[in-house]
Write a protein that binds this DNA or RNA. Structure first.
Lengths: 336, 336
DNA sequence: TGTATTCTATGAAAGCATTTATGGACGAGA
DNA sequence: TCTCGTCCATAAATGCTTTCATAGAATACA
């Protein structure tokens, strides 16, 4: 059953059927009804591929997510997909992993699929000049690209992010001002926002003119699910003689590890050790005590990102960067 | 740049270009090289929509996920997407919520998009006769449908699931045999697997010929992220005088709530209260003590589901039901 | 060696199901 | 009668796959 069959049944041309289908105004109500009746009767729906060919779009948008099983990124995908669908777009998801190669691969697959835009989530872009980001700069010449929590200065690339620098800085300042000067900074990603957070931490020390021990900045290599690994890691640091009275983590999962570390070593939280996580996820509530964590308003970020995306696709002028602020949600692992 | 341009440049017909592109054997090596060179030179890629129109497929598969921000379902989506992509298929994701209406809606959107198949995750189908499932039975006449952890007896619908009945039964038997006869069964979903788990719990009591107090079966209405809500809920039950020395939960998040409940009431785990969760997710490790939980091998389930899907699409005969078994992973909330 | 037969490589053309540009018919108002 | 606007049909364009037909090469056989 195609548009010809319908046109024949209705005694009109296929152009008229198309006009009815697409809500054109230049069609007499009586004709419209006649055609609609036939369409309903036969349960006809236009062929999406033919439509795509004619219009050069199938209203679908690619989402490249480094790891959609990650709590934070999964939520991002969830919000983005919902907003896109509300605007009539389909989401083609690819979970790429964190490596540049596989992202490049996913990107070219999506562009060959002729998606209208690509949204990237869980990125690690720092500068356009970075050779690693070349592929995205190139891709953007064909298809607009939207980054969540990343920053890339490049035409046709739009970034929506949280000011992780400031949020982390504020958290660190609160700790410093409460008298804790040995804050362990624990991170597990060298993504753009990862580096922003680290800078925020450092700048807090600078602002208060307190020297910051380099040993207090620690990168955790393990898996993003290995809470016990984090605990071991911290135990190791302690055995090496490193002392710290707070842990500021770039992710809740690291903070959860810190809480377990404290328990196993009988360190009182928050009196002997303060812990601050990031993302304010379910893990902060699951832990005991519940973890203070920076909330960066993911839902707002995603909804704004999609708004930008839709705007661009509609030919509107859109700001290349949108920055929101995050804030510390105080729970039981801090005395702030 | 289309196939005509390429054929002109290479001095062959478009049929030959198409044959080269699709790896047909009937083309002379020299011709193939000539064409490939031109293709490389101009960086030509075939138009996916036209290809879709010709082949009546764009190699994409719809995934309807009730809630991709749920820890378990997000992982399912992750595994499924990865396996699909390995087989050359794209994934079109829709997060539908748990209501039948919105699932029906998502399904019809995907079918209009002309996906080759639909995979549904986080379902709640019990019987084909159930009026609520009518839409899926109908949809299956057009497009094969694959369900994860659900059961629907219907042509063109294929189910891959864990034997949640047996896994829960075994967990309950272990508790009963260790002398705990007042096991609180806590669940938050009336999905197929939710009901299977409940039956498993009941059957364990039957097998040991121990009467099962109806009050011990409790449904938690709240959000899937509201661990504190679960804690309150359990506190309420306790205040009403209900006693129980174990909690068997249909999801880790409920078990995490149980752990928090025990702590706040100074109930020793596992000596005074055993807790068993389901899914063996990150939450079991984040909690303190770590929660014993049933692992239902999600990765295996997903990879098998995709294998079935690909088989069906290749016209192979595939079993309509595949059932795996789950098993209890013992951690610190049980003495088993 | 010549004829018949098969195989290989290729081109021409017919789909596939839409949208859209162009223009014609018709009626109304000036 | 001329002009304009409304409604609709015709035909072209979109870019690919695939079937069918065929020229020429290779093989078989007498």
């Amino acid at each position: 059953m195609n548009i010809y069959d319908i046109s024949k049944q209705a005694g009109v041309s296929i152009a008229t059927v198309s006009r009815v289908l697409n809500g054109s105004h230049n069609v007499k109500p009586a004709t419209r009804k006649k055609v609609m009746d036939i369409i309903d009767q036969y349960g006809y729906t236009p062929n999406a591929f033919a439509r795509g060919l004619g219009l050069d779009t199938m209203n679908s948008i690619g989402i490249i997510c480094a790891d959609s099983s990650d709590l934070y990124l999964a939520k991002a995908v969830y919000y983005i997909e919902g907003n896109l669908r509300k605007n009539g777009y389909n989401s083609v998801l690819m979970c790429s992993g964190y490596e540049h190669d596989s992202k490049e691969n996913a990107l070219s697959l999506l562009i060959n699929q002729r998606v209208d835009a690509v949204i990237m989530v869980g990125s690690n872009y720092i500068e356009a000049e970075d050779e690693n980001n070349r592929y995205i700069v190139n891709a953007a010449t064909q298809t607009p690209i939207f980054l969540l929590n990343a920053n890339l200065d490049c035409p046709n690339v739009f970034c929506t992010m949280c000011d992780d620098f400031r949020a982390t800085q504020e958290a660190a300042l609160l700790l410093l001002d409460s008298g804790i000067t040995d804050i362990l900074y624990l991170y597990n990603s060298r993504s753009y926002s990862g580096m922003q957070k680290l800078s925020g931490y450092r700048s807090a020390y600078d602002m208060r003119e307190i020297p910051c021990n380099r040993e207090l900045i620690q990168f955790f290599e393990g898996s993003r699910e290995d809470i016990d690994g984090v605990r071991h890691f911290l135990c190791g640091l302690r055995e090496q003689g490193l002392t710290f009275h707070a842990v500021l983590a770039s992710e809740d999962m690291l903070a959860a590890g810190a809480v377990k570390y404290a328990k196993i070593n009988n360190i009182a939280i928050p009196d002997e050790l303060s812990v601050i996580g990031y993302n304010n996820s379910l893990l902060t509530v699951c832990s005991d005590p519940e973890i203070s964590s920076v909330d960066n308003h993911l839902e707002t970020l995603c909804s704004r990102l999609v708004k930008t995306c839709i705007g661009v696709l509609n030919g509107e002028e859109m700001p290349p960067k949108v920055i929101y602020s995050g804030e510390l949600v105080r729970k039981a692992t801090t005395n702030l």
